[in-house]
């Protein structure tokens, strides 16, 4: 069912892969293709970003704007909210507030409507989030005004896993907090008194470009989902297996209109048969639509996205070093 990329795209991908292998080889002599290992040697120990190096973990309060989670940050001289968006591959900043920074790099990317869009990169001197301080960070610029206008919040940008992937990350949506634990090379917590995360379910995850991919089951099929806290709802590809789509009760449909005559059909419903291991998650709202553009952008075929609704099902623990997702579910009746 998954549409094969055309020849030109494949050729471009192969060239890009070769170039990437080459550049990482020259930098680290540890080339391993397009993988997260690329950046490993560029990273310093996570602890150096803590403003108080004596502590082993920090808790960052999350704020809510409807179904979105916000993190407060001070970026150079600008203070405000970043949306915690684990679907973003890197730090993305709102052009409205950062357009005066010098653009250091400009890449072309294929826009969704076939047009070529320019992605501008800037360098920021520092970003402070709670007790974390990152210096000399690269960020993409994007127009994010529409999020501000639709959700009524000031949005400085999007904050994904990029800057915090060297910590063990605990997302507790019930208490609205994000806890980061310092970990060693093997991914074990370094704190003396820190207990390990008490997971009622765990799975090995795939990661690529700072994105986490989770496997879930619907209608007897195993599907790959992108974990995206910046998605206000879960999503399932409308190209998914028919047994998968047959289990989704559709409540609403809408046609989204883009530029010109571009139109896309979006269905909204409930997944009645979503399981993670042996745990069935009820009331998993989802939209059903075409997600092919995300496949291309993430460089990975995905069948769906796990968004807001999934994040509220339990406490999530993500460990990039161990490539492990742990979930602590509340009592079954509360799922």
């Amino acid at each position: 069912m998954f549409k094969q990329p055309n020849l030109l795209f494949r050729l471009t991908a192969i060239i890009a892969a070769v170039l990437l292998c080459f550049s990482s080889f020259t930098r680290s002599n540890k080339a391993s293709g397009i993988s997260d290992d690329l950046k490993k040697t560029d990273r310093m120990s996570a602890r150096k970003n803590l403003t108080n190096p004596a502590i082993d973990s920090i808790t960052i309060p999350l704020k809510r704007a409807g179904r979105l989670f916000l993190i407060e940050a001070i970026i150079d001289d600008e203070a405000g909210n970043l949306i915690f968006d684990t679907g973003a591959t890197g730090l993305v900043l709102n052009k409205s507030y950062f357009r005066n920074h010098t653009v250091v790099d400009q890449q072309s990317s294929n826009g969704i409507t076939g047009s070529v869009e320019k992605v501008e990169n800037i360098n920021i001197e520092q970003i402070k989030v709670s007790d974390l301080l990152f210096k000399n960070i690269s960020a993409n610029l994007a127009n994010l005004g529409h999020i501000e206008n639709r959700r009524g919040i000031k949005v400085l940008g999007l904050f994904g896993f990029d800057l915090i992937r060297d910590y063990e990350i605990i997302i507790n949506s019930k208490n609205n907090q994000l806890t980061l634990h310092c970990i060693d090379k093997k991914g074990n917590r370094t704190g003396l008194i820190s207990k390990n995360f008490n997971a009622s379910y765990s799975q090995k995850i795939e990661t690529l470009n700072n994105i986490v991919f989770i496997k879930g089951n619907i209608g007897g099929k195993t599907l790959r989902f992108c974990f995206d806290t910046g998605a206000e709802t879960n999503a399932v590809s409308n190209l998914a297996n028919k047994h998968v789509l047959n289990t989704i009760a559709i409540n609403r449909k809408t046609d989204l209109h883009g530029a010109g005559s571009a139109k896309s059909e979006v269905l909204f419903g409930v997944m009645n048969d979503f399981t993670l291991g042996n745990t069935r998650l009820n009331n998993m709202e989802t939209i059903v639509t075409n997600l092919e553009h995300l496949n291309e952008a993430y460089g990975m075929h995905i069948d769906g996205m796990l968004g807001y609704n999934f994040v509220t099902k339990g406490i999530l623990c993500i460990n990039f070093k161990k490539k492990l997702l742990g979930v602590s579910f509340p009592k079954t009746s509360e799922l």
């Binding site: 999007l158 883009g258 139109k263 075409n290």
Partner: peptide, 16 residues
């Protein structure tokens, strides 16, 4: 089922 892509689906954006 219509297979047209959402016009503004983009990883560096929020899915609202």
């Amino acid at each position: 089922v219509d297979n047209n892509a959402i016009p503004y689906l983009n990883p560096n954006d929020i899915f609202m």
